[in-house]
């Protein structure tokens, strides 16, 4: 990319004038403008548009909450915790990177060594009351375990309800059936990743 657009600081040359009427200067000019606009019937132009669309019965209003607009795949709403396909095991390995990167400091987890000498996450919470939905946690996650889902409605009687890990985790039956959707947003694998990866040689 050329740096010309950044180095050329003479921005004046790219301006062009918009056709704007002269501002009224004197009291007489202002009086003339009021009379002209008041008698022009501009109000009825707008009213006619409304009338016309009402008669057509072609209404674009979304009947929320009965209807919902489709959400862009990269929209950042309430987090979801993904599971591995087939086995259904939680993807989260407890590395703590989301906890570290979180700029509003709302993620916290407890880990321990489990019976199989693996790292186990015993507690995981996101305080949605503090979360600013920046998406850093999803971006930094090496396992694509924490992602942003499309659920943007958060109402509850208690703030504590916003931090339940179980609510964020994909239900196990869904994961086993393969109904869990892969997240295409921040931190996801890009389409031409295979071509970029240098393969590690194997001796067998």
């Amino acid at each position: 990319m050329s740096l010309e657009q950044f180095t050329d600081r003479n921005v004046q040359q790219h301006y062009f004038k918009v056709d704007i009427e002269e501002y009224p200067q004197t009291g007489w000019d202002r009086f003339k403008q009021v009379v002209k606009r008041g008698l022009n019937g501009e109000l009825f132009v707008g009213l006619w548009v409304v009338m016309r669309e009402m008669i057509k019965f072609d209404i674009h209003t979304v009947q929320y909450p009965k209807e919902k607009l489709p959400i862009g795949p990269r929209y950042r709403a309430v987090h979801e915790m993904q599971r591995l396909f087939e086995s259904g095991t939680e993807r989260c390995i407890g590395c703590g990177l989301c906890e570290k990167i979180c700029i509003s400091d709302c993620i916290r987890m407890d880990t321990r060594i489990d019976e199989n000498s693996r790292k186990e996450v015993t507690e995981y919470t996101i305080n949605l009351g503090r979360c600013i939905f920046c998406g850093y946690c999803a971006e930094v996650c090496p396992e694509l375990a924490i992602v942003h889902g499309p659920r943007y409605e958060n109402t509850s009687e208690q703030r504590e309800h916003f931090i339940l890990f179980e609510d964020m985790l994909t239900p196990i039956d869904m994961a086993i059936k393969g109904e869990q959707k892969e997240y295409p947003g921040f931190g996801a694998v890009t389409p031409n990743e295979d071509a970029r990866v240098k393969k590690t040689p194997l001796a067998y």
Partner: peptide
């Protein structure tokens, strides 16, 4: 200590 916390925390 194993797996209880990370160095940077």
């Amino acid at each position: 200590f194993i797996y209880t916390t990370n160095a940077w925390e």
